[in-house]
C-alpha cells in the first residue's frame, strides 16, 4: 500500500512541470475567456519561439554539466551585426548566414577555452558574455537600430498557415530531440554530463562532445537572436540582456539538472518555455498587479527547484538502501 502511494507520488514528481503547466492553463482559462483561444495559443508559441530555441541550445550545455552565460550577448551581437548589414542594403539571407557563423564562432571559442585551457565554463562564458556585449555596443554606438520592414514581414510571415517563428522552433526542438535520443552523439552528451572520466574510459572523446555542444549552443543563440529581432523591429542596446537566465530557467523548469546528465529538450525544455510564456501571457490577460509578475515567476522556479532537490534526495536514499 505504502509502495503504491510512493509510486504515484514519484510519478507526480517526475512530471511536476507538466502538472504545473496544466494547472496554469486551467487557472488562466477560468479567469480569462480570451486566454483559452486558438489565437492566444499561437501568440504564446510565437512569443516563446526565440526563448525555446535559445533554451534548446542551453539544454545541451547543461546536460554536460556546463553552462553558457554568453547566449544573451551572442543574441545582441547577432542582432546588431545583422541589423547593420540589412540596413546597409545587403541581402537578408547573406546577413543570416554570416551571423549564424558568428554564433558558431562564439561556441568554438567557448569550447576551446574550456577544454584546452581547462577553465570552468562559468568563467569562460562570463568573459565571452562581456566581450560579446561590448563588441555589440561598440558596433552599434549604443544606438538603437531600426530594422527595415522586410525583416518584420519575415517575423510575422506564415508557411502553410504556421507562423515562421513557430515553424523554426518546432524544427529546432525536433532536431534536438532526435539528436539527443537517436544518435551516438546524443547519448555521449548524457554520458559526459554524468562523469567525464568514465566517458573517457568508455572510449568517448569528451573534448569533441564538449566542442559540439558549445557549437550547438552558439548556433541556437544566433538563430534565437534572429527570430527575436524579426519580431521586434528594432534592436535597443539592452536587447538580449538576461536572456541567458531565462534560457537556463526554462531548461531547469523542464527538468534538466544543473549537475548534468539529466534532462530533455522534448518535452522537458519546451514545456519549461511554454510554462514561463503562459504565465507571462496569462498575467497580462487578467491584468494582474505588475508587482506580482516577478513574485510569481520567482516562486514557480523555487517550487521546481525544490521538487528537483526532493527527487535528488530520493535518488540518493534509494541508492543507499540498494532498493528499487
Amino acid at each position: 500500500m505504502k509502495w503504491i502511494l510512493n509510486k504515484n507520488m514519484q510519478r507526480l514528481l517526475d512530471n511536476s512541470t507538466m502538472v504545473l503547466f496544466a494547472l496554469t492553463v486551467l487557472f488562466f482559462s477560468l479567469l480569462s475567456p480570451e486566454f483559452f483561444s486558438f489565437n492566444n495559443f499561437f501568440n504564446i508559441l510565437v512569443q516563446g519561439a526565440a526563448l525555446a530555441i535559445l533554451a534548446t541550445g542551453m539544454t545541451f550545455v547543461l546536460l554536460t554539466a556546463g553552462i553558457d552565460l554568453s547566449v544573451g550577448s551572442i543574441m545582441f551581437l547577432v542582432g546588431v551585426i545583422s541589423g547593420k548589414m540589412v540596413v546597409s542594403g545587403l541581402p537578408l539571407w547573406f546577413a543570416g548566414v554570416i551571423v549564424l557563423g558568428i554564433g558558431l564562432a562564439f561556441g568554438f571559442v567557448n569550447a576551446l577555452f574550456i577544454f584546452r585551457l581547462k577553465v570552468i565554463p562559468f568563467i569562460v562564458t562570463l568573459a565571452t558574455f562581456y566581450a560579446g556585449r561590448g563588441l555589440g555596443l561598440l558596433i552599434s554606438d549604443t544606438r538603437a537600430i531600426n530594422l527595415p520592414e522586410s525583416l518584420l514581414k519575415l517575423g510575422s510571415g506564415k508557411i502553410w498557415g504556421i507562423p515562421v517563428p513557430i515553424l523554426l522552433m518546432l524544427i529546432v526542438v525536433f532536431l534536438a530531440y532526435f539528436i539527443l535520443t537517436r544518435t551516438n552523439f546524443g547519448k555521449h552528451v548524457y554520458a559526459v554530463g554524468h562523469d567525464p572520466e568514465k566517458s573517457r574510459k568508455a572510449g568517448i572523446s569528451v573534448n569533441r562532445v564538449l566542442l559540439k555542444v558549445y557549437l550547438i549552443c552558439g548556433f541556437c543563440a544566433a538563430l534565437g537572436g534572429l527570430v527575436a529581432i524579426s519580431q521586434l523591429g528594432a534592436i535597443s542596446p539592452t536587447f538580449g540582456l538576461q536572456s541567458e537566465f531565462m534560457a537556463i530557467a526554462a531548461a531547469i523548469l523542464g527538468g534538466t539538472s544543473l549537475f548534468g546528465g539529466r534532462g530533455s529538450v522534448f518535452p522537458g525544455t519546451l514545456i519549461g518555455v511554454l510554462l514561463i510564456q503562459s504565465i507571462q501571457n496569462g498575467l497580462v490577460m487578467i491584468n494582474a498587479d505588475p508587482y506580482l509578475h516577478p513574485l510569481i515567476t520567482g516562486s514557480i522556479i523555487f517550487l521546481i527547484v525544490m521538487i528537483d532537490s526532493l527527487q535528488n534526495m530520493r535518488r540518493k536514499k534509494a541508492k543507499k538502501l540498494g532498493l528499487n
Binding site: 551516438n184 547519448k187 555521449h188 548524457y190 554520458a191 554524468h194 566517458s199 574510459k201 568508455a202 546528465g261
Partner: peptide, 18 residues
C-alpha cells in the same frame, strides 16, 4: 563500476558503439 547511472541499461551496454 564504470556505469552511467543516468542512462538506461541498453544505453550503457552500447555507449561506446551503438
Amino acid at each position: 563500476l564504470n556505469l552511467f547511472t543516468n542512462l538506461t541499461v541498453m544505453e550503457n551496454l552500447f555507449i561506446s558503439d551503438f
